[in-house]
């Protein structure tokens, strides 16, 4: 296995870690207005206050790692999705400061709660649309993006954007099922059920749309022998979806969250089937975009040493704040 493939998996892992970890943070932001002002909202936010910053750091690893390992891809994808990236960043500004600001200014708490939701929604929508823009194809000439600055806006990208919002809402709702109690938890169960339906419908729509964007995608999914492997992805998705609904109906607390993560994992696998081995579909493969071996090797040493440590202390931080949020926050 060559270094470029290893790096493709590392970046994919960072993106996946970001999507699921900040996904439930953003999902809570999206669902925030449906929780009652006061204790319910405080608890919802307290359930992620100690971990959101660490979760968001995976986005920096995904972006910074892409620049380091696949600089050409970074240099083409970001200008191609320019307004979406800017919108995402500004959304994350509002979302991030709301964690602190709402506690600093009780008189304007409603304003920062709105900023929390609007920021989360914009960030989630932008991220989904960036994915859609990547999948539908980016015009590149030589080593630069050559399209216009609104190429990213199509029905397909709107579909992927809304699908991501629904998926994040599912993650957020199932996280809250796990962390809340009583009436707030019952509300989270209802939200999880609805967002699960929305997520699966939109996931199906995106999955059916994607193979028809490009003949290459179609072949990767439906040509033999690929079909035998690729078809496992929707099959497993159906199985996980069954257990998710069953878990929600049986009022399981932790399982729905993990099953939702599983759905995202399968979504990521499906994305891999569609894109491999391209990083800019149909244009630039991971080998075209890869940094030289010296860069890859130097970073791989760092990843090999630090990633296990990062995962260990991140797990510890989650462990410290395990269990129900309770009425006193984490104090």
């Amino acid at each position: 296995m060559d270094l470029t493939i290893i790096w493709a998996f590392i970046i994919a892992f960072a993106v996946f870690a970001y999507v699921v970890m900040d996904g439930f943070d953003l999902g809570i932001g999206i669902l925030f207005p449906t929780f009652k002002v006061g204790l319910e909202r405080d608890q919802a936010m307290n359930s992620i206050a100690p971990v959101w910053d660490g979760n968001e750091t995976w986005l920096v690893l995904g972006g910074g790692g892409l620049m380091a390992a696949f600089p050409l891809a970074y240099a083409i994808i970001l200008p191609a999705t320019y307004p979406l990236i800017i919108a995402m960043l500004l959304g994350l500004v509002f979302r991030g400061v709301a964690f602190e600001f709402r506690w600093r200014d009780p008189r304007h708490r409603a304003l920062w709660d709105f900023a929390f939701t609007a920021g989360s929604l914009i960030a989630a929508l932008s991220q989904g649309m960036i994915l859609g823009a990547l999948l539908q194809g980016i015009d590149a000439t030589g080593r630069a993006y050559s399209g216009s600055w609104f190429d990213w806006l199509t029905p397909y990208t709107l579909l992927t954007g809304i699908g991501t919002v629904a998926g994040y809402a599912l993650l957020g709702a199932t996280w809250l099922v796990w962390k809340l109690e009583g009436e707030a938890q019952a509300h989270a169960y209802r939200l999880a059920f609805r967002s699960a339906i929305a997520t699966l419908v939109l996931l199906a729509a995106v999955s059916l749309y994607t193979p028809f964007l490009d003949a290459d995608y179609f072949d990767r999914w439906f040509a033999m022998p690929n079909f035998l492997f690729a078809s496992q992805v929707p099959l497993l998705t159906a199985i996980l979806a069954y257990f998710l609904f069953r878990g929600l109906a049986k009022k399981q607390e932790a399982a729905p969250f993990w099953l939702s993560l599983g759905l995202f994992g399968l979504g990521m696998a499906g994305l891999g089937v569609s894109m491999w081995p391209y990083v800019v579909p149909s244009q630039i493969t991971i080998w075209d975009a890869a940094a030289p071996e010296r860069s890859q090797m130097f970073m791989l040493v760092g990843v090999a040493i630090t990633l296990p440590l990062i995962l260990a202390y991140t797990a510890w931080a989650y462990w410290v704040f395990r269990g129900k949020v309770g009425e006193d926050g984490y104090h």
């Binding site: 380091a68 390992a69 080593r143 860069s295 760092g302």
Partner: peptide
Amino acid sequence: SVFSDKAGPVIGPLMAYEV
């Protein structure tokens, strides 16, 4: 982006280490 493409192999890893 042109800077990122050209300098990415050198400065990208340093920024990855920062993360």
